[in-house]
Amino acid sequence: MSLVKEYQCPHCNAPMDVNPEDAIFNCVSCGQAVLSDGSEFKDHYILKNTLNRTKIHEIVKDFIKKKGFMRGIKGYKITNITPTLTPFWVVTSDAYTHFVGYLRYSETKTRTVGSGKNRRTVTEHVTVYRPIDQEIREKRADVLLGRRGSSIYGYDKVRDIVRSEFSTAIPFNHDHLVGTEKEFDYLSSEIDLDAANQLGKTVVFDNHRARAQKACTKVFDCATQLTYTGTYFVHAPVWQVEYVFKDETYRIAILGSSGRIILGEIPVTTRFRMIFLTLTFLALGAAGAGSWFGRYEVYVPIIAGIVAAVIGFFTLKNTFKPKSVVD
C-alpha cells in the first residue's frame, strides 16, 4: 500500500475524483469541504457578490446600449453565464527605493549680442546634465492572480479593480460555498503564501526600476527594500458572460461585487464600418479644404496632410477590425 495513496473523504470515506485545480475539495457524497493540506488560510477574504442573473442581464443591456452606440446592435442573446470565484493574492508592503543617475536634456537659449547695427539674437542649443538622486517611498498593494501559468479574460484590468475594491472585502467563511455564492465555480489558489510574497516582491522591484529608468537618462544605481505589511488571500466573484449577435459569440467579464465591467467585446457592425469609412473621407475632405485655403504657405498643406494621415490611421483601423474590446 505504500506505493499508492488513495484520495478519500475523511468524513464519509467515499472515494473522491480529485481535481488538481482545487486546494479545497467538496465531497460529492456528503458535501464535506476538505482542505488538501489540512490547514486553513488565516487571511482569507472574499469580495461579496451582489449580482444575480437578472442583474447581469441588465448590466449587459446597459453596456451594449452605452458602448454599442450607433452600431445598431439589436437582437443579441445571452447564451452563457458562468460565475467564478477567482483567487487573488494581495501583497501589501512598504517599499523604499533609492536611485542615482542623471537626466540629459537640451535647452534652447536665446541671447542678444552686439550693439547698434550689429545687434542680433543668437539661438543655441545647450545640452544639460542634471544629477538625479531620488527616493521612492510608498505603501503598496500588489494584486496577483492565484493561478500559475494562466491568465483570465481581462486579467490586467481585474487586477486594478481588485486593488481598488480590496477595502470592502470581508473574511471568508465556508458558508459562502454552500450559501449565497453556491452557484459559483470555486477556484482555489495554486500559489502559496511564500510564493505570493516572492512574486509580489518581483512586481515591486520591476515597477520601481521602471520608474527610475523613466526619471533618468541613465540609472547608475537602483536599490529597493521591501517590508511586508500583510498578505491576503482574496476571492473575487467574476461573472463571465457570453452573448450571441448574428451567430457570433462575444464575451463580457463583470466583477460581481460592484457590477463593474472588467472587459467586454462588442460587435463591429456594417453600420459601424460605414461610419468610420465616412469619417475617413470627411477627414480627407476637411483637411483638403483647409490646405486649399492656405495653399500659398508651405507648412499648411504639410500639417493638414499629417493631421489627415493620423486621423485616417485610426478611422481605417476601426473600419477593418473584427471586434471592439472595451472596458
Binding site: S291, R295, Y296, V298, V300, P301, G305, A308, A309
Partner: peptide, 28 residues
C-alpha cells in the same frame, strides 16, 4: 495650386498604404 498638392501626396499615400496593410491582412 500653390503647395496644395503636397497635402494630397502625404494624405493620399498614407491612406492607400494603411488600406492595403489592413485590407490584405489574411490571418487572425
Amino acid at each position: 495650386l500653390g503647395y496644395f498638392s503636397i497635402f494630397g501626396a502625404i494624405a493620399g499615400l498614407v491612406f492607400a498604404i494603411r488600406t492595403l496593410q489592413l485590407g490584405l491582412k489574411s490571418r487572425y
